[in-house]
Amino acid sequence: MAIVFQKTKGLTEKQTHYCPGCTHGIIHRLVAESLEELGLLDKAIGVAPVGCSVFAYDYFSCDMQEASHGRAPACATGIKRVHPDSAVFTYQGDGDLASIGAAEIVHAAMRGEKFTTIFVNNAIYGMTGGQMAPTTLIGQKATTAPLGRDENHAGMPLRVSEMLATIPKAVFVERVSVHDVPNIMKAKKAIKKAFEIQMKGLGFGIVEVLSTCSTNWGKTPVEALKWLKENMIPYYPIQNFRNPEEVK
C-alpha cells in the first residue's frame, strides 16, 4: 500500500475555525505542503494578517508572527532583513492587502523585499461580515453595497497582480485559483516557485489566489466555487504576470 495523499507536516493538528468549504483551508494546505516539500519548514517564518486568517499562526507548524491590519509586509521586511536565510511569507486577505495595507505591499515590492506574499482574494471582507473590498466585483452585493457595487460610486475593482507587475523588483507575480483540482495543482506549483525564487534571493514574489467566501457571498460552498469560476476569473484572469526568466 502506498500513500497517495496524506496531511502535510506543515500543518498543525489544530482544526480550523473556517466556515465549511472555505478555500482558505485549501490555500493553507498548499503553502504548508510547499514548505514541507522544499525542506523549508524549519526555516520558515510566516506573518498572519487581520482577517479570517488571523489565526493562521495556529495552523502552520513553522514559526509565525501576527501583524496588525495590512502591516504584514512591514513585519516580513524586518524579519527577512534580520534573518536573511529564513523563508519568510505573508498570508493576507484582500481587505488586508489591497485596502488598509495597499501602501505596505506596494512599497515592499518596490524595495524588492525578498519574501513571498500569499494574497487570498475572495472579493470581500470575510471576517467582519461581508463589507465591500477594493476587489469586490461590479454588481456584487456586500453589506456596504446592498444593491451591488456601483462603478460610479465605488470605482472599478483593483487588479492587484496587474498593478504589482509594473514594479521592477516584483520579480514573481502570478494569479491562480483553487476552484477545482487542476487549478489547485497549478496554484501549488506557483506557490512553490515563489518560495524557490525567494530562496535564490531574486526579489519580491506574490501569488494571488482566487478564493471563496460562501458565507458572505450567500451561497453554498459548491455554488461558491462555481460563482468564482464564472464571475471572478473573467475579471481576474489566471496567469503569470512576472517570472524571473524575464528579469535580467
Partner: peptide, 9 residues
C-alpha cells in the same frame, strides 16, 4: 479544505 481525507493505492 479541512484535510479530512487520506488516500492509499
Amino acid at each position: 479544505p479541512d484535510v479530512v481525507i487520506t488516500v492509499e493505492k
